[in-house]
Design a protein around this nucleic acid. Structure first.
Lengths: 216, 216
DNA sequence: TAATCATTCCAAATATTATTAGAATATTGG
DNA sequence: CCAATATTCTAATAATATTTGGAATGATTA
């Protein structure tokens, strides 16, 4: 009975191409950014705090693994995830990391131990309250990202504009702020600002991708 | 407003530990084997066709990423996945690879273009037929793996024993053979043998882990 | 207690990957 | 067509990862 070593080796090698795409911290950050919607190379570089050249190299990796696709608009090239399953995989990878790695758990707790986190378990209740208007769900990401996709009932005020637009928010209801996901600090900052200004605010760690991923 | 580079870097670094665990072909093969149930180091080395030392090194990687746990029994140390989510992640990674990478698709087709594959879409019908006894679902993995978990209604005849135990199988019904998943060749071999001997046999690419993973 | 066996640890050799710099390409706007 | 800009490509270096061999560990059995 054949052992099929050669065949098997090529099969696992191919799958490893996908795994490799998820094995570098910066590349993961790029994937997370792209799961918020398409972005230009320059924009990705800014957001991930790396050089354009480096982000371009990471994008090439992702492109050869067939995980991203491009579109040209004028001088800019816009990248997007080639498949929703890529964002889902990102969510599943970081969830597993959060479940298994104590170092990650404690690092996450340091981010926002002061203002109360909203546990994701009361998803149902959160939506019920949002539907009734008992709370305000606030999306503090840049406006384009909100336009690409956002949580149900969410209202958009990008973090940059929050200070000027405070008056749009009610003082008598809780504000639940969210951003790109658990590794994005915009919602944390938003909650900090809102709390200082006397609003009742909490932050939701989940982003759109986490919300959309069915598996818990 | 802070940018939180340092914090972010550590967060993505942690998640990348999980990604790295899935970035080497041999390690993926080990993960797949472990998703069939716990195995000794030696056994893993045999199955993956690598040295004990090398498999031990890969296991160490998996252990530091907290993805596996060990148990000692006599002289042997048995490894198992630390969480069902690890097997789920393996399934999701290889599915994404199959969807995105043409090279993988064509390599998979070469394996078994002759005997008809059973598309996984008729999962419902397959189970209905199995329940009624219209078909025989045959698990050709080693017996321990069958004992750890198997598909509903499946009967176990390990590939090694198949030739001697042919008489246990009916000639008037279709036999659907499966093994560890799409990269395992045991079911292919089983179908080849059965077909030669005049049985009606097809092979199912999914294994227990794929079957158990809800997301399609 | 010694001998044996499975496994891990350590260190070295090789192969791969991440990152940076400089040259090349493609597009727009004049 | 030319100049300006965004991005990629190529090549080089620094950093990591994989693989292999030899020594060490730790439990079991005689």
């Amino acid at each position: 009975m054949r052992n099929g070593r050669k065949i098997k080796d090529t099969l696992y090698e191919q799958v490893a191409r996908i795994g490799k795409a998820f094995s570098s911290p910066k590349r993961l950050e790029v994937i997370e950014l792209l799961s918020q919607g398409e972005k230009s190379v320059e924009r990705l570089a800014q957001e991930a705090s790396i050089s354009v050249k480096l982000v371009s190299a990471h994008l090439r990796e992702l492109r050869t693994a067939q995980l991203v696709e491009t579109r040209r608009e004028g001088k800019n090239i816009y990248y997007r995830l080639a498949d929703k399953a890529v964002a889902d995989l990102w969510v599943q990878v970081h969830r597993l990391a959060e479940n298994r790695l104590e170092e990650l758990q404690s690092a996450l707790q340091k981010i926002a131990s002061q203002p109360g986190d909203l546990v994701p378990s009361d998803r149902e209740n959160l939506m019920k309250a949002a539907r009734k208007g008992e709370i305000v769900v606030l999306d503090v990401r840049p406006a384009e990202e909100y336009l690409t996709a956002h949580l149900p009932f969410a209202r958009s005020i990008p973090l940059d504009e929050l200070r000027q637009r405070l008056s749009e928010l009610p003082r008598d209801r809780s504000i639940v702020a969210y951003c790109r996901g658990p590794y994005c600090l915009m919602a944390v900052d938003a909650v900090e600002l809102l709390s200082k200004e006397g609003y009742r605010a909490v932050h939701l760690r989940e982003g759109v991708a986490e919300w959309a991923s069915e598996a818990r």
